[in-house]
Each structure stands twice: as structure tokens, then as C-alpha cells.
Amino acid sequence: MTEVVNDVDKIAKSVTPLPFTVECTDIQQKLIKKEGPITADNTLDWLTRVKIKDSAYGEQEALIHLNAPYDYHGYRLFQASFIADGKARSITLRVTPESGGAPQDVNIPRAGSATLPDGTRIDFMDFNAQFSLGSEQVETERSVYTNPAATLLIHPPGGEAVKAFAFSPDMAERAPIAKKPVAGYTWRLVDYEKVPLAHVLSIQKDPGSPVVYVGFLMLAMTLGAVFFFSHQRVWALVEERGPQNFEVVLGGNTNRNKLGFGDRFKRLTGAISGEVLEVKKS
């Protein structure tokens, strides 16, 4: 796992080994408007399915999506961000026999396979949104599907596996390579479920979070105490000046809201003008 390290004088990236490996098995981007663009604005949720392989705890599968991180033995896996990738979750191929015959449509999920009636197996190896034969791969916006192409590995019955590309029908018209049959078939890419963005997970090991939360709780309680339970003290000095005649001297202080306290204090002093009903002497 790569993480950002904040030292006193620099910020650097470091690689931290994890005691387990994470293998992504599927990603999915749920859209708000299905016919809308595959952008962050139009996204309801990003889902990532992973397989965690750990020598200590074996293998297990997990689903991680927004607001639903996955806790794994003190580690927490979050759906963190995304980067442009330009892949496909599934493809639909139109396979036409070279010898003539009706074309058939085959749907293959990512990293999956399909087998034709004659026993030919097709492995869906890779997908490229901007296929190019040369080295002129466009690196800037890989999530724009200008020249989509699927990379396939064809296993003819009894023959050796051969690599083939399936292009969209309009591109196939332009590229001679696409017209050439491979393993006895022509391969056309007629549909695909776009996955323009790769998901980035963050993995957190944060054994200190309970301490932070307790700190938050204490701060909240202190704030309550500070504002709602001010310390107020009142002293009274009562001196007998004569029979049925007392002098009462009052004093007081408070640590907060002196004006409010002054108000109450004035009312208190104003109230002490009553008649003496009883004098207790001990």
C-alpha cells in the first residue's frame, strides 16, 4: 500500500507492506440517470468487490462501496476515489463464421469466457477505449471511448490459442486488421458496458480512533459544562444591629456571564427586605 507520509520538513510517499493481498474481482458504477454520462455528477454509487487473501485468516470476499467500508482485522477498506481507465464490465460480440452462416451474439463478462457451439472457447482478456496499433496511446483521457476494442484469446477445439481483437462495426470498416478472420470467425464488438473509471481504495489502520472519539465526547461535554453550568457563589454577612434589626451584606462572584449574574444578584439584594420571622440561636 502506498501512503503519504508527513515529515517535519517534507511530504513524501512511502510503500507500506500489508499482511494480506487484495484482489479486485469486479467494479461497478451505479448511475443516477442510466442514459446520462458516466461522470461523478451522475453517479449514485461506486461498488468494488474484492478478494482478500491472508495467510493467517484464509481467503474471503468483500463488497466495498460509499458509506460502507469493509472492516478486516483492524484494517478498514474504503471506497476512496477513481481514476480514468476506459475498460468494459462486459462485452457483446457478434461472431460470424468465415465459412458462411448466421452470425451469433455472445456476451462475456470481464475476465470471463464463453464457448461457441463448435467448442471454440473465447477468453475476454482486456479492453481498450482508445485502441491504437502503434505506440501512440492517448494517456490523458483514457475514459473516452473513441476506438473501443476488446482483446480476446481464442481457443479453437484441438488447436492452439490465438489472440484476436474485436472492434466496433464502424471501426472494423476502417481497419484492415479487423476484417481478417481469426480462428475461423470474424469478431465484432457490438455492445459493451462501460467502466470508464478505475476505483481507488484506501486502506486505513487506525487503532487510535477510539481515543479521538473519546476526545470529541469530552470536548462536547466540556462545552456543555462551560456554557450551562457556570460557577456562581454568593456570600452573606449578617450582623445584628439591635433587637429585630440586622444588617445583611451580600457579596458574590461568577466565572461566566457576569452581567447575567449581576442581574440576579440585584434581584436577590432587592428581595432581602422582608420581615424577620424567627431567630434561631444555638
Partner: peptide, 8 residues
């Protein structure tokens, strides 16, 4: 008087 609280 301080040790003899008055009840007002």
C-alpha cells in the same frame, strides 16, 4: 449573628 442564621 453569622452563627445564628436568620430565616427571612
Amino acid at each position: 449573628a453569622l452563627s445564628q442564621p436568620s430565616v427571612l
